[in-house]
């Protein structure tokens, strides 16, 4: 099965989790996800997810000048964002446990 199907449901959680570790700009978040093992995550999906979370008021952004090129727009979790991360993580753990129980014997 294609993990991209699974990813769709949890990309929010993954992005929030990456940003919870450290603020990051779009491409950094993308690299963070890939480095964590989510190789199949699409570039546009990550950028789109960041925009949606930002529009939903879960992220704040600030611009940092960079020596090697364009300014970078950093995203950072705000309080609603952290709250959302906690809730979603809880839901995810319950779901993962359930799934594990379901398929553990397979």
């Amino acid at each position: 099965m294609d993990t991209s199907q699974l990813l769709k449901g949890v990309l929010d959680l993954a992005v929030l989790a990456v940003l919870d570790r450290a603020d990051g700009y779009g491409y950094e978040v993308l690299r963070g996800l890939r480095a964590a093992g989510l190789e199949e995550v699409g570039d546009a999906s990550v950028y789109g997810t960041l925009r949606r979370l930002y529009n939903a008021g879960l992220l704040t952004s600030y611009v940092v000048p960079s020596d090697e090129g364009p300014h970078r727009k950093y995203y950072s979790l705000n309080e609603p964002g952290r709250e959302r991360l906690r809730e979603t993580a809880k839901v995810w753990r319950g779901f993962a446990e359930t799934m594990e129980g379901l398929v553990g014997a397979a």
């Binding site: 990309l11 699409g42 570039d43 546009a44 999906s45 990550v46 950028y47 789109g48 997810t49 925009r51 949606r52 529009n55």
Partner: peptide
């Protein structure tokens, strides 16, 4: 090769961004 066509990129972004 990396991003797909602009249309596909836009479509994926549209879906992810809601």
């Amino acid at each position: 090769a990396r991003l797909g066509t602009p249309q596909a990129y836009a479509g994926e972004l549209r879906a992810a961004a809601g």
